[in-house]
Design a protein around this nucleic acid. Structure first.
Length: 424
RNA sequence: GUGCUUGUAGCUCAGUUGGUUAGAGCGCCUGGUUGUGGCCCAGGAGGUCGCCGGUUCAAGUCCGGUCAUGCACCCCA
């Protein structure tokens, strides 16, 4: 039996040095996205199940076998969000989007998918994503992809690889599907079990099957882009042209499909070699989503990057979590009478030195033990408060690095510390 | 959902062909005289050997199941 204290499979507890790394990523994302005029949005982490089923598509793997779905007390079917776009679009639809109005938002947060955990794959994972809604302009796709690259750059991730393809418009789909079926029909008997099933359920997926006989057949298949109508091809050409002119290095991946039904036109992924088998760092595309009751579908383009995977990529590049002290200043209270004054001193120091971590030792244990504590916390300075100091209105300041110590009058302490701890 | 892997102190691990009180390193606590850390020294705390069942005179060691870890597949972030 699993211990109740163990986190559930595919979930984990994240502790201090790592949480700082997460904050670094979040702040970098805010910084970059703000500069592109995006605002942060926070939507619920659970939604009506239909929000996902109707947008991702009820035949997709995510919907069919990966969602955490449950009934609430009123008997409604709810789902822990498996991705971010559907909820954001739901929120925008609910707020109302005026004709011609654009919205640009970004978000971070936990997502949930009931899969077997592996390297870079968790059941609760975290994404940072953006959505640009209300623009059907290919230059928007270009800017979004460029922004993603700039974000990756800003967090030190080099060596990533951008792949781009198009799925065309919904009205192109029937033609693509029948062309693919025509191509695969004589070969499907020799292909893998999954592909034989996909031939009927989802031919497009046969293009990116990784099993051996299938890859060679897929490689010889017609390219999606060549099967599309004029409008779709022009759109994609503009996206590619824009990427080149903006200086985004990318690879045209004619058989990139991606798993969600809401995608139209541009789809893209960013991969990185430092991740293991799941090498996608981020993915996205243009989409069209319509919820029941809306007159017109909402069109947008966005992407999501996996935070855990960004962290893995950074690790593979040697970027590690920042090294922090548990305390910059440790206040030692010697003896029962000094414990409360130590607490009070710590309080005033926190007000004075906003950027520093100040801890007080309330145990009243031996000075040796408290000094060990200060050392373990890697404090820059230990402030010693005992009966003598209380009587004299002073405090002993011991610089841990050099072992030098001085007795300072309490009213000169702030100035003393300010010069000694070149941080504020 | 499938396959493989691993599961012994807080951490990293050792534990011989099943055999008496389960070990190491690191970490932790206390001390090395009066109010001082890091090094050193001495003591100490800490383990139902993941869990359940089976085989056996005897199981951390063998068998089965189960839970969990890691990785891979499917698919995705």
């Amino acid at each position: 039996m699993a211990s109740i204290t163990e986190p559930l499979p595919g979930t984990s507890d994240i502790w201090e040095p790592e949480t700082l790394d997460w904050i670094t990523l979040e702040n970098a994302a805010r910084n970059v996205f703000h500069r592109y005029g995006y605002g942060e949005i926070r939507t619920p982490i659970f939604e009506r199940t239909d929000v996902f089923v109707k947008s991702l598509g009820d035949e997709t793997d995510v919907v069919q076998k990966e969602m955490y779905t449950f009934q609430d007390r009123g008997g409604r079917s709810l789902t822990l969000r498996p991705e971010g776009t559907a909820g954001v679009i739901r929120a925008i639809a609910n707020a109302g989007l005026e004709q011609g109005e654009e919205k640009r938002v970004f978000y971070f947060g936990p997502m949930f998918r009931g899969e077997r955990p592996a390297a870079g794959r968790r059941r609760q994972f975290h994404q940072v994503g953006v959505e640009t809604v209300g623009s059907n302009n290919p230059w928007m796709d270009v800017e979004v992809i460029a922004m993603l690259c700039q974000f990756l750059d800003s967090i030190g991730i080099t060596g990533s690889h951008v792949v781009v393809n198009t799925r065309g418009l919904p009205e192109d789909r029937a033609r693509v599907t029948s062309a693919l079926k025509e191509y695969f029909a004589p070969k499907v008997g020799e292909m893998c079990e999954d592909c034989r099933r996909r031939f009927d359920t989802n031919v497009w997926r046969m293009l990116d099957c990784k099993n051996e006989p299938c890859t060679t057949f897929a490689a010889g298949s017609p390219k999606i882009v060549d099967l599309l109508g004029e409008e779709s091809r022009t759109f994609f050409e503009k996206v590619c042209q824009g990427l080149r002119e903006v200086g985004v290095e990318y690879e045209f991946a004619p058989r990139l499909v991606r798993g969600l039904d809401y995608y139209i036109h541009t789809v893209f992924e960013v991969t990185h070699s430092g991740l293991g088998a799941q090498d996608a760092l981020a993915g996205g595309g243009r989409y069209r989503i319509q919820f029941a009751g809306s007159k017109t579908p909402i069109e947008g383009i966005g992407f999501a990057a996996g935070m855990e995977r960004l962290l893995l990529a950074r690790q593979s590049l040697g970027i590690t979590a920042p090294d922090v002290r548990d305390a910059d200043i440790m206040v030692l209270g010697l003896g029962e009478s000094a414990v409360l004054p130590a607490l009070q001193l710590a309080q005033t120091l926190r007000g004075e030195f906003a950027g520093l971590r100040v801890k007080a030792d309330f145990t009243g244990r031996s000075m040796k033990a408290q000094m060990r504590g200060a050392n373990k916390a890697r404090a820059q300075v230990a402030l010693i408060l005992g009966e003598n100091e209380l009587a004299q209105g002073t405090v002993v300041c011991k610089m841990m690095e050099t072992s030098e110590q001085e007795t300072i009058a309490i009213n000169e302490l702030n100035g003393f510390l300010a010069t000694k701890l070149n941080a504020r």
